[in-house]
Amino acid sequence: MNWRALILVFAISAMATLQACREKAAIATTNPLLKAYDVEQDANDPQRVIPLNYQQAQGKRVFNNTCVWCHAEATPAGPSNRSNVTPTPPLFTDGETLNPLTDEFLQNTITLGGSAMGKSTMMPPWGQTISEDEIRSVIAYIRAVAQPPYQPTARPASQYPVK
């Protein structure tokens, strides 16, 4: 009689543990660049590849259409227009100049033009040509490629709860 009880107990415990024995697929560790929407070769260090998210990638596209002519050393047409502009515009990767400027300042300068912000008149206003979101994405892009890297200033959390 005992062996019957044994079989019973064994069968029950087997059923109970069966569920736990399912094979689970291991989550593969992936290359971080596989997780990037687009990538950008670092202008100063060809070994370094900067991953860009969707917004930064859109910024790269807008930049290469609109801003590249005066804010980069090489343009789709070859030489840059930088040397024809006085004062010389900062390069888009120039972190030393651009990192201290806030997002709001950059957004305003691009939207309203240099003269509205006390900068060079040669920087035209883009607010009616490219959208607010596109300008924001351009800023996200230059933050991503800045050299030295851009560190967002830690803003203290609001003391009032956000509703």
Binding site: P125, Q128, T129
Partner: peptide
């Protein structure tokens, strides 16, 4: 469409 020249006021 897509001209580089910015639109101004």
């Amino acid at each position: 469409p897509g001209a580089i020249e910015p639109r101004r006021t």
